[in-house]
Amino acid sequence: MTTPFPILFEDGEALVIDKPGGLPLDRPRAGGVSLEDRLEELRLGFQRPPAPVHRLDRDTSGCLLLARNPKALKRFAAAFEARLVEKRYLGIVAGPVSGTEGTIALSLSKISSASEGWRMIVAKKGKPAVTHWRKLAELGGHTLIEFRPETGRTHQIRVHAEHAFGHALLGDPVYGNGRGAARTMLHAAGLTVPREGKDPVVALAPLPADFAALGFADD
């Protein structure tokens, strides 16, 4: 049976898909296709369609965990909430990055305005957010960074990159200038979700074609 997306992991309670960049999870107000429209195709013989456990931005590609039943959804969501899930992202920063590795700890808060919509900002009274990073390669004025977020705040990696490095992710229209790529260059490359009494859910998403087109490879 063909599936609408590459499947990176599958068992009786979990499905990890390789979500393409540009596909939103929820149906956009302006219309257009979303993951919501494709969940029925991911039933694959099961009684009900799977449900996303966590969120990836529209532009972000890579590992997305779906639960195949309500009990699994509750358990997986609790693992994310308890920060037991290991997440590995790859991002292309639109400029040079000094240093080779480090940790960014900047609290984040949401703001919104009628003219610009909403965005996340660094704010002392915001929610704590921690991201570990490591430089993998520099090429053509851009830098490939591995991000391992400890927390899972909205737009965390995007805001942390812009503040810590002085450059946003390539193609980011909100925290950068939106130039250099057709999307915000962020990829969920790896996901490990522990399970009590079972082997963990482990998934790896290959580097997308638009990363490779810029000359980068995942080490």
Rank of each mutant, 00 (worst) to 15 (best):
S61W: 11
L8V: 11
R48P: 02
L15H: 09
C63N: 06
G45E: 12
E10Q: 15
A51W: 05
L144Q: 09
R55Q: 14
H155V: 05
T143M: 12
H187K: 04
G171V: 11
T60M: 03
G178Q: 03
F80H: 03
L64E: 10
A212Q: 13
R158D: 08
G62Y: 03
L73Q: 14
P28E: 08
F147P: 06
A164F: 13
R153Q: 15
G95W: 11
V33W: 01
E10I: 01
R88C: 10
D199H: 04
F46R: 15
L42A: 11
K135F: 02
V33R: 14
E162M: 14
E146A: 15
G171R: 07
A168L: 09
I92V: 15
Y89K: 07
V97P: 04
L191Q: 02
G45D: 10
G152Q: 08
F216K: 02
H187P: 10
R83V: 01
N69R: 13
P128A: 15
I7C: 14
A129Q: 04
H160V: 10
G32D: 08
T184I: 09
F46Y: 13
S34V: 02
Q47Y: 04
L144D: 12
R158E: 06
R179F: 00
K135N: 01
D11T: 05
A203Q: 05
P173D: 07
G178A: 06
A181G: 04
D57G: 09
F165Q: 06
D172P: 06
V193A: 02
W118N: 07
G32N: 05
D57A: 08
D11M: 08
P49A: 15
R43H: 12
G176K: 04
I121H: 01
N177M: 01
R38F: 13
P194N: 06
R183L: 11
P24Q: 02
I104P: 00
G32S: 09
E116Q: 13
L44S: 07
V85N: 07
F76Q: 05
D37Q: 14
A209C: 00
H54R: 07
E196L: 12
L84G: 00
L84R: 15
P96D: 08
R38T: 02
H163V: 14
G166N: 14
R48I: 01
P200S: 11
R158N: 04
I121G: 02
I157N: 09
G197W: 08
I157R: 08
L64Q: 12
I17C: 08
G140Y: 07
S34C: 14
V33E: 15
E10K: 00
R183A: 03
A82E: 15
A79H: 04
T184E: 01
L207D: 05
D219Q: 12
T2Q: 14
W118M: 09
R43M: 11
